[in-house]
Design a protein around this nucleic acid. Structure first.
Lengths: 210, 210
DNA sequence: CTGCAACAGTAACAAGAGTTACACTAAAAC
DNA sequence: GTTTTAGTGTAACTCTTGTTACTGTTGCAG
């Protein structure tokens, strides 16, 4: 039994299921920036995160992007669950936020485990619940907040996910995630710095009010 | 066995489950504009729509609203499913878009049926899938479209849901659903009329390009 | 050391959306 | 019929965000 698997999931799954996951699953490592899945890809595997973080993005027709949310240890991708049922293509893009280890499970196991293990059913339902909640949060953010508030929230989320008050990002990268332009981000960051909320350096933003 | 239940769900559920739904469920009628559930309410029942339409709204702290999506016959509320697991409060508001008939099921049955009926599991998963997809669509709309495009899409969706090319709404009501102001809606509607996409009358918008 | 490329700062302007204010009109109430 | 109210049309202005263009700065490659 992989130690990491046990550590991250033994509160969630019963022993028997843990062992089955260990047997059927394949451990994978992806490094920062690598694409785990793209829009339009067929979903053949279901991921269980052990360590690291994944960011989930939505894309429009013109190549514009929008950050939806992050996945962390103990999370899985609800869109994947969802796609397994319908055998449909992925609606989102998943990119490693930092170096990440995960276990992938062949989707054939899903239905079997759903019928057999109560802990699995609960996990799946709770994943759906968590993802729906995060989607609602995303909608709140883009519908009800101004860009400066969205930016500050983004920086705080990012700091939390990476467990560091320093965000190593160019203004352009932030602009992509928030679906706006670099100039806008530079402008607002400067304003946040004058407000004393952050400190700016090249490739490097320090968040002061975590 | 209620005829409507059979009609709407016999393709989805096996006979035995249909009979159990019929036995355990309570038929309810709500009229247009009535609130089925509000934000913060505890969710004690799960709805299965038989006829009509429900609109699902999100709210911000200042009382501002935003339309998320509509539910129709054969749909259920994924937020409800979701809440049943976590025993949490509702994150959304549900309002009857027109007179609606539905069956409510005590949430205690949910877990039992999930373990027992494959068709129920599939239904629940497909509901989650459908709702996640609609949430993505909502996000696309508010993140990637301008207000005039959102407005046109809103009118088309509304026409489709109510099976009529006439939308009976005041500009103010539309403004609430799209989380903007009446003046903005009036302005854009007038523009759409000049473009030949709609025809305006009091309390009444005819959609020309369905 | 030089030159290039990526990153950041900023100004000036354009476009979209929100706000305020007021006039007009149809429908409902009296 | 007259009054009242809800709904609509529009102008003028502000604020936020997006766009274009140009400057300066850092760091790396040659």
């Amino acid at each position: 039994m992989q130690e990491e698997l046990y550590e991250a999931y033994h509160f969630i799954f019963e022993q028997e299921l843990l062992e089955e996951i260990n047997k059927m699953g394949t451990p994978i490592t992806i490094s920062e920036g690598e694409h785990l899945i793209n829009i339009g890809d067929y979903v053949k595997m279901m991921p269980l995160l052990l360590e690291g973080a994944i960011k989930i993005l939505r894309e429009d027709k013109n190549g514009g992007e929008l950050l939806l949310y992050f996945l962390e240890r103990g999370d899985t991708c609800a869109m994947t669950l969802s796609c397994c049922v319908g055998q449909t293509k992925s609606e989102i893009r998943a990119v490693a936020e930092r170096d990440t280890r995960l276990i992938v499970i062949p989707i054939g196991k899903m239905e079997e485990w759903t019928a057999r293990y109560k802990s699995w059913r609960n996990f799946v339902f709770e994943s759906y619940h968590a993802r729906l909640t995060e989607m609602l949060d995303t909608i709140d953010t883009i519908a009800f907040l101004n860009m400066d508030q969205r930016l500050m929230k983004y920086l705080q989320d990012k700091a939390k996910i990476n467990q560091s008050e320093i965000v190593n990002n160019t203004h352009q990268q932030i602009a992509y995630d928030l679906h706006t332009s670099r100039v806008v981000i530079s402008r607002l960051l400067k304003k946040l710095e004058l407000d004393g909320q952050i400190k700016l350096q090249r490739n490097n933003i320090e968040i002061l009010n975590l």
